[in-house]
């Protein structure tokens, strides 16, 4: 796959389709792939990487990249394409300056799960169909991909690339996933249990803002948390209340626009399952106002900024909250 993408990147650069390529390169570690812009043939040949750790969602970078003049080509996995389409809907990306190469995805891998398999001294990780081939100092290990998948990929919602100019691999379809089962478990708790759960999770927050900075829906020109006028600005976690409020405010702000790409949880250095907050909002919205998937198309109105006569009354929201 990496070679196909590399060839495509070179081809697009050379035939003039794009002036720049947005892809991934190795970050601090081989499993830490970082979004990068490639401008020359040499850069692509030397640095362009696509591996089972290319989880980073590139769509958000296009807000800035698409405005820089010239044309940028980007590789989007199915879940990234939902974020991309949502940003198109919000007029954040200048579509005419972007060439989208859709990439079919078999799911991304979690380094922690590889470590849990007892792999040490890992040199590189490659794909071989449904298997992941791990080269270590001590030899080669082969694992089925399914055993190493990131949690968000286990409950993948869709293999469909929503928006693209060309596609590498087969077009996929929306999947029946039980991504809300964990939310349902939380809902089944008593409010004291649930409070304890979130207190335990959120108390680890160091307010590094990684979740906000990576989130494609969190792309305001000026974030409320950076705005002195908003009354909620605070760089560091001042107290437990502050840190728990931060995540709930963020969940509310992205409701109706969150595509459930799961980047917030992936980048959290404290492994807080932040995506569960967003999923709870999505689940509630689906149940109250009918199923809605942000980023599934560029036209439909999100339920929270739309009104229909048969909308649920706010009282039912209150009733549910009281349960």
């Amino acid at each position: 796959m990496q070679e196909r993408l590399k060839q495509k990147a070179l081809e697009l650069l050379e035939n003039g389709t794009a002036d720049r390529i947005l892809g991934w390169k190795i970050g601090e570690f081989f499993y830490d792939l970082t979004p990068a812009v490639f401008k020359t043939r040499q850069e692509i040949q030397e640095e362009f990487v696509y591996s089972p750790f290319a989880g980073a969602n590139l769509s958000k970078y296009l807000i800035a990249e698409s405005r820089k003049g010239g044309k940028v080509a980007v590789f989007l996995k199915p879940c990234d394409s939902y974020s991309f389409t949502q940003l198109l809907k919000e007029h954040r990306i200048w579509r005419e300056n972007v060439y989208v190469v859709g990439v079919q995805c078999g799911g991304m891998c979690d380094m922690e799960k590889l470590r849990a398999k007892g792999c040490e001294g890992v040199l590189s990780v490659g794909e071989d169909g449904e298997n992941i081939v791990v080269e270590t100092l001590y030899g080669t290990n082969v694992f089925p991909r399914a055993e190493l998948l990131e949690d968000r990929c286990i409950t993948c919602k869709s293999k469909k690339v929503v928006t693209f100019d060309e596609l590498i691999g087969e077009q996929g379809t929306e999947l029946e996933s039980d991504r809300f089962s964990q939310v349902a478990q939380l809902e089944a708790m008593t409010s004291q249990e649930r409070f304890a759960f979130w207190q335990k999770e959120l108390s680890r927050c160091i307010r590094c803002n990684a979740c906000r900075n990576v989130c494609p829906a969190c792309s305001c020109e000026k974030c409320v948390f950076d705005n002195p006028g908003s009354g909620v600005r605070n760089k560091a976690a001042a107290d437990s209340f502050e840190e728990s409020l931060f995540h709930i405010i963020r969940a509310f702000h992205v409701t109706g626009r969150c595509t459930d790409c799961g980047e917030c949880s992936r980048v959290c250095p404290q492994n807080i399952p932040l995506h569960l907050l967003n999923r709870k909002m999505i689940k509630d919205m689906n149940e109250l106002y009918g199923t809605y998937q942000a980023g599934a198309d560029p036209d439909t109105k999100p339920p929270l900024t739309d009104f229909t006569l048969d909308d649920e009354e706010p009282s039912i929201v209150h009733t549910r909250g009281g349960q």
């Binding site: 919000e90 007029h91 000026k222 705005n227 900024t305």
Partner: peptide, 11 residues
């Protein structure tokens, strides 16, 4: 300076 241009208000 804060407007994202997202059209939510317009809609």
């Amino acid at each position: 300076l804060m407007c994202n241009g997202c059209s939510s208000c317009e809609k």
